[in-house]
Design a protein around this nucleic acid. Sequence first.
DNA 1: CTGAAAGCGCTTACAG
DNA 2: CTGAAAGCGCTTACAG
Lengths: 334, 334
Amino acid sequence: MAVTMNDVAKAAGVSLKTVSNVLNNYEFIRPATRQRVEDAIAELGYEANLTARSLRSGKTSMLGLVLSDLSAPYYAELASKLMDAATKHGYRVLVEQSAAEGAAELNALQGPFRQLTDGLLFTPLSISADAIAERAGTKPLVMLGEHIMDPRFDLVTMKNEEAAAALTSHLLAGGRRRIAVIGATPEESTGTAGLRLNGYRTALKNAGIPFDPALVAPAEWRRDTGAAAVAGLLEAGVEFDAVFGLNDVLALGALHELLIRGVRVPQDVAVAGFDDVDEARFASPSLTTVSPGMDEIAERSMALLLDRIAGRETADAGVHVKAEFQLKIRESAP
Amino acid sequence: MAVTMNDVAKAAGVSLKTVSNVLNNYEFIRPATRQRVEDAIAELGYEANLTARSLRSGKTSMLGLVLSDLSAPYYAELASKLMDAATKHGYRVLVEQSAAEGAAELNALQGPFRQLTDGLLFTPLSISADAIAERAGTKPLVMLGEHIMDPRFDLVTMKNEEAAAALTSHLLAGGRRRIAVIGATPEESTGTAGLRLNGYRTALKNAGIPFDPALVAPAEWRRDTGAAAVAGLLEAGVEFDAVFGLNDVLALGALHELLIRGVRVPQDVAVAGFDDVDEARFASPSLTTVSPGMDEIAERSMALLLDRIAGRETADAGVHVKAEFQLKIRESAP
DNA sequence: CTGAAAGCGCTTACAG
DNA sequence: CTGAAAGCGCTTACAG
């Protein structure tokens, strides 16, 4: 059997409570007592049983991270940063992939997954704010992304509209007039895709250019679907001189498809994305995109969640944070 | 307070043990009793407390996954598949990033992380087999990768030597004679890099071509380091007509560097990688690489770990599994 | 097939 | 500053 607190207490000649006090850094312990306990711990190689601690205290020292797909570069990079941040604060991260499915999202919100974690970083994609509110429970919950922007919930996100507008304006300043958008439906206006499309429309409007729904191609946010979407536009005979992929993998898929069809980038068609994943810098041509402030998003969301858990943040209404973005002008749309 | 088993037992008019029997699918329960218990569970909305279960049973229903960096595409894709597999079997996955540092690896092996999981999928990169054996404890441990290939441990890996040899032979068959290798030191012969380099040397030997250490450039396995390594070779005046990046991100970084320097791929220099991450297919030119059988690796390693946990696999010596590979011939080295 | 009791290893009021 | 006791919510032998 493993060494228990009881063994430590006996070896140090103190009570259980005193050992617990030492472990939990209780302030008022006689230095000599503390020393004796610490010696006993070292000698016996005692390690606290986290499960027992958790059962009694109700805290698990684990955080939940729910996102659609860990193999998507944006999420992979974000998860990596969040885990590093959590480790720094003594927490571990339990990841759940929802595949953007409502059932999986609900499950993560209420099921055993929730029970095992002290707080949740949640990227909802399918379920509604009301469904979340109904099941939110009492443990802290911080939203990532923009499917839900509701005053009831804490939210850390990015400046989607502003950034998309800035990127579109850059394309317009480069003389592009028919900018295809990949990854949204023409009438979308909420959620990540909708907000980025709004930004695109705002920039067009400011430039006095009418919005043409024919230029907007829906697609799931992957490379293969980005490629297929641009192929669809070309085959439908839609004319365009730029492609705005609503995220980088869409743009990279589109870029690939254009090049194998002999379309020159950026001479014939400029291409731009959104996310600034590492891959974007090393594409050929390198990809113009938006850096959405991922470091800031990771740090702020982790800090907010930990503040809620510790009771340092007590605002009744949700706290909303938007990270700063940066345009990354590269070869694909100089 | 949450609903407990006691509440269910009272509501159903049975003992605690009977409720436990129903929850754990004990075979010999009178159907009527089972029904009453299930009704009570449904009515009260009872959910088992996993922490309590875990304290008593010693099982956590969590699996640990230790890898160096979740933002690396190969690991991101592997982790994603492993999580899906774990979910299918009722397990959750706790991920730990080691940054390939020995201290972090030791920590994952013994610390609280280990305590919280029923078994570990471990990609050691720094620590020795002996160090692992010393700290392996009694819980199941399956190695991923090839830093440790020791009969004491279960291991699921890929055919590094064979695959690297096959890829090199393909480059040779295409008329390439000076194939630079990025991501290893010339004398390396163990670990993932060493094995792949061995395969390269075997293929050269079979073709009667001498091994030139000047063609081998060390680099950490990232895009930026791949680019820097190829830049280093060019600036040192080393002549080569092909580049074998020991993984895809190295190859993609190298590809990018070659193209911005005006080297034509594949006309002047062929480029090949290893891993077949999704990105490889969509690079321009698309990347010739090895598909190492990631699906098989994910499935087999998960199955082996679960078999060890359940006691279905009882071999004293480590079970070693090697997945089948496939060459993916694409534009960068046709 | 089912029950009563013990106990997993901690933390938490409560005393003193 | 420290101790003795209770209890978090389960599962596990042990009986019957």
